[in-house]
Amino acid sequence: MMPDRNSPALEFRDVAKTFTLHLRGGVQLPVMAGADLAVYPGECVVLGGPSGAGKSSLLKMAYGNYRCDRGQILVRDGAALIDVASAPPRQVLSLRRRTISYVSQFLRVIPRVGAREVVASAGREGGMAADVALARAEELLARLNLPERLWDLPPATFSGGEQQRVNIARGLIAERPILLLDEPTASLDAQNRAVVVELIRARQAAGAALLGIFHDTDEREAVATRVVDVTAFAQKRAA
């Protein structure tokens, strides 16, 4: 099915987020307010702005990992439009299986599960047949230069860069229409960064809507179709 490129795949409308630290006497940490942003199929929108401006929070809210205090986060799921900010847990989980992928900065390691299986299981969760998922997992790990002798080992003992490549393969294996990327290349060397940039551009060319954070200027220029500075959202938070 060709994505409809004229309506957003993901849209933030008037989104606000404040953390309340109850263990610190209820201190309020406003992160953003009035955040409006639409991401269309085939776009790679890169979030700009200094550390602490709320870039990661925005991605985490879109994935349902952080709550949203106000506003809507609309995700196009086939013909339906689902508001992640108010959707019940089972609907958010269903979006994660079918519609939204998220590549975090760090791999959450599961004891006893080997790298290839970590990636393949993400493929199966995304609806791929077991043999297809396994083949695609191997293809991605090879592409990302993870030595074959590591494939059956649990990533707990891997280096940061190796773990991150497993994480990227895990996030990319199921080709969902929306891809959230939180500094996916931060711990990688130049060669592997180039591979990740290629993989990202391929997803974009296939019509996925991408929203990401990239600190490296070269990489940002290589993938971004548009840069949105979130400082504007942070400034509205005081109001």
């Binding site: 109850h22 990992n65 952080y66 709550r67």
Partner: peptide, 17 residues
């Protein structure tokens, strides 16, 4: 709520603790 949301962005004082 959703497990990762409650653990990563807990809203109640006791859950934060």
């Amino acid at each position: 709520g959703l497990t990762d949301q409650v653990l990563d962005d807990p809203s109640e004082p006791y859950t934060q603790l």
